[in-house]
Design a protein around this nucleic acid. Structure first.
Length: 950
RNA sequence: GGGCCUAUAGCUCAGAUGGUUAGAGCGCACGCCUGAUAAGCGUGAGGUCGAUAGUUCAAUUCUAUCUAGGCCCA
């Protein structure tokens, strides 16, 4: 007789292999068809809201692994909060305006660009952004991210553009907006400002000159350096490669900690960094330089003044950390109109006016026009292009006797990406938001401490940035963006930035889009009857600049959340890469504090950056880029999701072939455990009352398994609540590998396979298996969204509601199963399993020695202390099952000897020996039992199996 | 150059107000099973806790410096 046919062997169609690259698109199609996102929202309509406000990625290019990380993290949170019972809408967005798109489009156009109007160029940019947001949207969805993909927010939507203008109006209304000078990269050929991304660094030969700035008063008293007092001429020596910026000089900067030498050369004394004396002496051909003494930058220099070489006025000596000893003299010529560091230093010193270092504020002097020619402000060279004027300026310095030395320097210098000409730094009029007028800085800092920063260090990071940042420059000299709705009086050129006018423009923009600004004249845009408040003129010119895109995305909380309803603002969570402390978190905070007086978010969660397997940044040139599209093709999006969850995303994350392979293995284990669970409930019906067993009546082993499940449930949900996803992966992994596969399921095989189909023990275990696999699907769903659904599909006996829902993602997390005294159960079984581990070790030794093969061939002899005996007595019947052996004998002994036994553990109070089992092997259940052979009809079966068979 | 941060087995992660032999899962090696089978089980080998110096009776844990790496700024 074929006894195998009488067993209840596992049965399932659930495939061992996920086949994810092929199967995932099928799930996605189904979810789209059943409008899963909407269905979930409807099912939670009356639940408390949880708002995760999406930060908009830039609509340019395909998504990279960092995008995948960001969106999957969000998706895990959205799904887990949903399953915890919240209503969690997710509206994805895109940042559509800005330089990179305009740059790309312009590049593609080449010379044709000149033939296009602004509106036409903007249209091309719009199409470009549309193309890529669509591509990215599909790629995000492919990752299994659920959201309102049909209604995303785009910063180029007309309504959104209108909100940007309106919010700018509020900034103006609060009084912090002003126009001021700021240096930008400027192409004198194209007469346009350039962004850092628009310049190319190429070699360039510049003059290299050393110039004396003579002290007006001998500083000997100040420093007390011997031999200095009587000297007639004492000068600071600066070095520069841009002689043409000298007319704009305002100061000299020294490093506070560098030693400066007073060098006697002939009858004069020159001051320069000690370490650069030799190099400077060589470059300037100084004869017999003699160092009279040294002083650090911070020791007395600050505030002393020197004469300027080409202009009237005096330049104070200031201190700056940016001064280096790499080249020059360690004394830096400061022209705030022509250098970023110079400009920032000037702002810094002007701000500390009370410190009395300066007698008057430093000016941002720009004697250079759009064409790069000197203006009348520098009379001697007016009309001359600054780079062409360099040699003459050097000559002039020579004449004036302040040129200490000159040569040339070949160095890397910024050039215009379009015309390839060298560019210059030049201050131009820009729009700013003051950080301090209206206490924006102070109020923003206060708000920072009302926000929860995860991890906490994020607080310090943004706090430091807000503390130190200069005023926010809002203007950009570009086309593709939202215009700054300002006007200039044609007559008196007064700036018009009036909240009411701006509100009027905002309405126009909301209706027609920002193109309206470029298409209509100032007269058409302004409300009828507008007159200049300064001169009463009624003709105006439109402002040419657009707004910083950070302003645009910064107001998303207003553009996206507020229209949805009162409870949508502030958001519960913003979640982006840690670079956004300077970006979106920052601009959103400033915007929100200005217009609403508080932060737009309650919590901010940041993640790190994705690096390669060695922890190095990914780059095309290094050839170490891991593209999500490739991973999807090879492993499936599920593996990326698992990767996101398994890594410590708060630090930088690594990804490599090895890591992915390991994750695929881990995935296989979880999947296979589910498969095995499912395969053993093929004949189980959770809706059939006969298959329901009271929890209290289950054997301890089953209750232990349920207790472990409860623990898993608790820990996993805690993990979701705390955003500690890798804890969840570890919990799932451990539960599947250790609690289930190696313990519960292994032990259970005998019962499931050999017991009568309808036996209460078997049905009871099946009930447990059903609960476990159902719970696993629910608990893993936010991370392993496809696999959870795959399991959910084949669960037996769905209730009507479950069938209607049709997706695990509509479900909530499992209920905790009521188990009596779980602590005692846990403690008890911890001991039992520890004993089991010792026994397993002893079995292995006998296997090595070829005494046994399968553990069912074994008879285990335990020698235990009286205490241990009392503990084991209630389990004595169950021990063979627990150890998966045929026989267990327990004998009591007062002392446990380690010697002479296969294994022993004094703390556990037992020793273990293993022999070959006595009796015959039952053909059906493979146990060695004394009853085998006792039945004439089934001579190869044991009593238990005879009962099961008949 | 400045601000913030990271460094524990081959991999992903735990861990300790400083205190015995630093843990888990996976992978690997070896073995078993052949009724989870391109599966399952067991046993085992892997770590100078990035480097150096200091504080301490005691440091992987605290401090400093360095090295490597990341984000932001210049």
């Amino acid at each position: 007789m074929d006894y195998k046919a009488t067993l209840n062997l596992p049965k399932t169609d659930f495939p061992m292999k996920g086949n994810l690259p092929q199967r995932e698109p099928e799930f996605l199609a189904r979810w789209a068809e059943q409008r899963l996102y909407q269905k979930i929202q409807e099912s939670r309509a009356d639940k408390p809201l949880y708002i995760l406000h999406d930060g908009p990625p830039y609509a340019n290019g395909h998504i990279h692994i960092g995008h995948a990380l960001n969106k999957i993290l969000k998706d895990i949170i959205v799904k887990s909060r949903t399953m915890e019972g919240y209503r969690v809408p997710y509206i994805p967005g895109w940042d559509c305006h800005g330089l990179p798109i305009e740059h790309q489009v312009t590049k593609q156009l080449g010379a044709k660009k000149k033939e296009l109007t602004s509106t036409q160029l903007r249209q091309l940019c719009r199409e470009y952004a549309e193309k890529f947001y669509t591509i990215q949207r599909d790629e995000f969805q492919r990752l299994g991210v659920l959201g309102d993909w049909a209604h995303p927010y785009l910063t180029m939507n007309h309504e959104y553009e209108g909100t940007i203008v309106r919010e700018f109006g509020k900034f103006v209304e609060k009084g912090g907006v002003y126009k001021g000078l700021k240096p930008v990269l400027w192409c004198t050929q194209d007469q346009t400002a350039l962004a850092e991304a628009e310049v190319e660094y190429e070699d360039h030969v510049s003059p290299s000159i050393y110039v004396k700035f003579p002290f007006q008063v001998n500083p000997g008293k100040q420093f007390g350096i011997p031999g200095l007092d009587g000297v007639e001429k004492v000068s600071m020596v600066i070095w520069t490669t841009t002689p043409w910026t000298l007319p704009a000089n305002q100061a000299i900067a020294l490093h506070p900690d560098i030693d400066y030498a007073f060098v006697q050369v002939g009858d004069e004394v020159l001051v320069m960094a000690e370490q650069l004396v030799a190099a400077t002496a060589k470059a300037c051909d100084l004869s017999e330089p003699k160092i009279l003494g040294l002083k650090k930058g911070k020791d007395g220099f600050e505030g002393l003044v020197c004469g300027r070489p080409l202009t009237d006025g005096l330049s104070p000596i200031l201190l700056g950390d940016f001064v280096t000893l790499e080249q020059g003299t360690g004394c830096v010529h400061i022209a705030p109109g022509h250098g970023m560091e110079d400009y920032i230093l000037a702002l810094k010193y002007n701000a500390k006016a009370q410190s009395q270092i300066l007698t008057e504020p430093l000016q941002v002097v720009v004697p250079v026009d759009d064409r790069g020619c000197f203006t009348s402000e520098f009379e001697a060279f007016a009309g001359e292009h600054v780079l062409k004027a360099n040699p003459q300026i050097v000559e002039k310095l020579q004449e004036l006797g302040v040129l200490l030395g000159h040569g040339t320097l070949n160095h890397s210098y910024p050039h215009c990406w379009r015309c390839k000409k060298p560019v210059i730094f030049r201050a131009t009029k820009q729009w700013f938001v003051s950080m301090d007028k209206g206490q924006l800085r102070e109020r923003a800092l206060k708000e920072i401490d009302r926000v929860q920063w995860i991890p906490e260090r994020g607080r310090d990071r943004i706090f430091g940035m807000i503390t130190n940042r200069p005023d926010w420059c809002l203007s950009r000299q570009r086309i593709w963006g939202t215009p700054i709705p300002g006007f200039n009086c044609a007559k008196c050129s007064a700036t018009v930035a009036d909240p009411q006018i701006i509100a009027h423009i905002a309405d126009l923009v909301s209706e027609h889009g920002a193109d309206v600004w470029f298409e209509r004249s100032a007269a058409e845009l302004l409300p009828a009857g507008t007159v200049c408040s300064e001169c009463g003129g009624n003709e105006f010119k439109k402002e040419q600049d657009i707004l910083d895109v950070w302003f645009e995305s910064g107001v998303s909380h207003t553009a996206v959340l507020k229209p949805q309803g009162e409870k949508w603002w502030p958001a519960d969570l913003y979640l982006e890469g840690s670079d956004q402390h300077r970006g979106w978190f920052h601009s959103a905070l400033l915007s929100s504090v200005t217009t609403d007086g508080s932060a737009p978010y309650k919590a901010v969660l940041t993640h790190g950056f994705v690096l390669d397997g060695q922890g190095k940044k990914m780059s095309k040139s290094a050839g170490n880029v891991v593209a999500p599209q490739d991973v999807i093709k090879q492993y499936g999006a599920e593996i990326i999701r698992l990767w996101v969850a398994a890594q410590d995303y708060q630090e930088d994350l690594r990804i490599s072939e090895q890591i992915l392979k390991q994750l695929a293995e881990q995935y296989r284990k979880i999947r296979n455990t589910c498969r095995y669970l499912l395969s053993n409930i093929y004949d189980y019906d959770p809706l059939n009352p006969a298959h329901q067993i009271e929890i209290d009546q289950l054997p301890e082993l089953d209750r232990w398994a349920l207790m472990r499940l409860n623990k898993l449930n608790h820990n996993v949900r805690q993990g979701y609540t705390d955003f500690a996803f890798r804890q969840i992966v570890h919990e799932l992994d451990y539960f599947c590998s250790v609690d289930m596969s190696a313990t519960y399921l292994d032990i259970l095989k005998d019962r499931l396979y050999t017991f009568p189909k309808e036996s209460r023990l078997r049905r009871g275990s099946q009930m447990v298996l059903f609960k476990i696999v159902t719970s696993l699907a629910q608990l893993m769903a936010p991370i392993l969204s496809f696999t959870a659904e795959d399991v959910w599909d084949v669960l037996p006996g769905k209730t009507k509601e479950q069938q209607a829902a049709g997706s695990v993602h509509v479900a909530t997390f499992p209920e905790v199963i009521p188990i009596k005294d779980p602590e005692a159960l846990e403690a008890q079984w911890k001991e039992l399993l520890a004993i089991r581990a010792i026994v397993l070790g002893a079995l292995e030794q006998q296997r090595r020695d070829k005494v046994i093969g399968s553990s069912l061939e074994a008879r285990v002899v335990l020698q235990v202390t009286p205490n241990r005996h009392r503990f084991l007595q209630p389990y004595e019947q169950d021990l063979p099952t627990l150890f998966i052996v045929s026989q267990v004998a327990v004998t009591e002994s007062d002392t446990i000897l380690i010697e002479g036994h296969l294994a022993a553990d004094v703390t556990l109070g037992l020793s273990v020996d293993v022999t070959k089992a006595s009796d015959e092997k039952c053909e059906r259940c493979w146990n060695y039992r004394p009853t085998v052979g006792g039945h004439a009809e089934h001579p190869t079966l044991c009593d238990r199996c005879i009962e099961a068979v008949s």
